[in-house]
Design a protein around this nucleic acid. Structure first.
Length: 92
DNA sequence: CATTTGACGCCAA
DNA sequence: TTTGGCGCCAAAT
């Protein structure tokens, strides 16, 4: 099982209406410091079975999305995630 | 095999 | 709070 496969699997396990940071995904995949690599991996993934739009940055930012950051934000909001101005509103 | 690039993260100023 | 700099890892060239 390669790190790439682990990452894709972890991302595919993210529950609807919830989000995970790249660092969290990296940690769950085995490499806590591979947050950057996670972004590189999912950026090359165009499989709709992988909800990579549920992966956000540690600071609550959108990070990026191969179909447009705006689309990512829309998907998250549609799933019940409180996101405004391209930022995840966790506290308050 | 060596370098560069990129959907990141943390720390210091 | 916002920038800039450094570290870290995987894939592409």
């Amino acid at each position: 099982m390669t790190f790439r496969k682990k990452v894709l699997k972890v991302v595919s396990k993210i529950p609807k209406g919830s989000t995970m940071t790249y660092a969290q995904v990296a940690a769950k995949a085995g490499n806590k410091k591979a947050a950057r690599a996670v972004g590189s991996i999912v950026s090359a993934n165009y499989d709709p079975a992988i909800p990579c739009h549920r992966v956000v940055r540690s600071d609550g930012g959108m990070g990026g999305y191969n179909r447009g950051v705006k689309k990512k934000m829309a998907l998250l909001r549609a799933e019940g995630v409180d996101v405004e101005r391209y930022k995840i509103q966790t506290r308050i």
